[in-house]
Design a protein around this nucleic acid. Structure first.
Lengths: 228, 228
DNA sequence: TTTCTAATTATTGTCGACAATATAATGCTT
DNA sequence: AAGCATTATATTGTCGACAATAATTAGAAA
């Protein structure tokens, strides 16, 4: 009733969902770990009811896998998984680009451009720290996805697939010259969208994602051969 | 331990999920209805815990919409919703076709063809009954989706989007010459897949889905003008 | 020692009750 | 009578305990 912006009701299940989700994405709870409901309930100091609600949502975004009566495990990162995931991501974010070129307003586009400039400056300041690059990239892609204005597409990409994408990226890292190139690719994509050239934006986005995939793939291969 | 095939453990939440899901898809629980947890718990004779588990999964496939502390409503069917849904469906099932052309075995293809022949015969017997057409169509699409061999794509299409697709189809119906044409289109698609022509299969599938969309769209428009 | 069986333990699934929030109804003020 | 505040009701969110299932361990037979 005050002049504050609309405040969504936050439940305990929501809070613990965010906590566990970031713990999994950032590897604090390692990939492949068996999930113990009593243990997590103690750790986050709540009952099993909201915890199970959170687990259901974690399953939805493919961060854990449940089998009835047997429990849940944190998902394992694998090359086949990465390929399947990025195959879908290419297709869906390509579609998002075509739709964004059609539906984004001039103001939407201006905001994304401002965002890119801002990211570029903070990136230059914190050269080498990949976390900010990670956050900036996620932010950019998120804006384009929203720009598609297709609620189902937005839901699938940002609520379901993206946490797993982030898990691959955070745990296997962006490295080498990819970090600096990504900015230019983002610029090119938003330019194509601004020109209402959906096909070009689609193509550029697919290449952008494919390049990202190759980078992570190589990390996975190296890791597999070094101590496998 | 016996020679029976692998039997998944079925829980009470699973059972009630299937029951409520079909009730929503077939309109027994009408679109837009407020969901009352105590009422459904009585109706299906179980406690609220497994019921809430089921509701979480119904939200996942977009059949209900929940707002914290306020409850859930059965989704409403709308033209914008239909367009967004089918926009995604075209893209994803198009991708599924390209992947199926690459990954389906000769036996997979032979099975789908057998399925089509079977559907054709039962369809001829039960001319005019659209339910069997509905089931047959879902079955065909399901096979192609599985043929993509991409677990994330399979999950999104068959576990998340397809129940809503069925809801539109069941409640708004297939009518007119569409019913008989669909069989031919299915044949053409599986032929393209058999020829390992992914691009053509993709194109044909997109047209197939677009035609289906136009059909339902018209039903929605008619319904909207007749008593709106 | 190994392997299969049986009992034990632990975990998940379900239940009924309580607390917190939202909705509906009632009464009061203008 | 209309609008608002307040109370009352109902619904959702959370909790702790019990039942059913799976994992583990101990024990017996080969």
């Amino acid at each position: 009733m005050l002049a504050t912006e609309f405040k969504e009701a936050i439940t305990a299940a929501d809070r613990v969902l965010v906590q566990i989700r970031t713990a999994i994405v950032e590897g604090e709870i390692p990939a492949g770990t068996k999930i113990s409901e009593p243990e997590l309930a103690r750790r986050y100091d709540l009952s099993r009811a909201p915890l199970r609600e959170a687990l259901a949502r974690l399953e939805r975004c493919h961060l854990i896998e449940r089998t009835p009566n047997a429990g849940a495990r944190v998902v394992k990162l694998s090359i086949e998984g990465l390929r399947s995931l990025y195959q879908l991501r290419e297709e869906l974010e390509g579609l998002a680009c075509r739709l964004a070129a059609e539906h984004m307003t001039e103001q939407d586009i201006a905001e994304v451009r401002a965002l890119l400039d801002q990211h570029l400056s903070t990136q230059r300041v914190r050269e080498g720290e990949s976390y900010y690059q990670e956050a900036g990239d996620v932010d950019f892609h998120y804006r384009v996805i929203l720009g598609s204005k297709n609620p189902y597409l937005i839901n699938i990409l940002s609520d379901e697939l993206y946490f797993l994408v982030r898990m691959y990226r955070v745990q296997l890292g962006m490295n080498g010259p990819r970090v600096s190139r990504a900015f230019d690719e983002h610029k090119a994509i938003i330019n194509a969208i601004a020109n209402r050239d959906g096909e070009l934006a689609d193509l550029l986005m697919r290449r952008h994602i494919a390049a990202s995939k190759r980078n992570i793939e190589q990390q996975l291969l190296q890791q597999g051969t070094s101590h496998g």
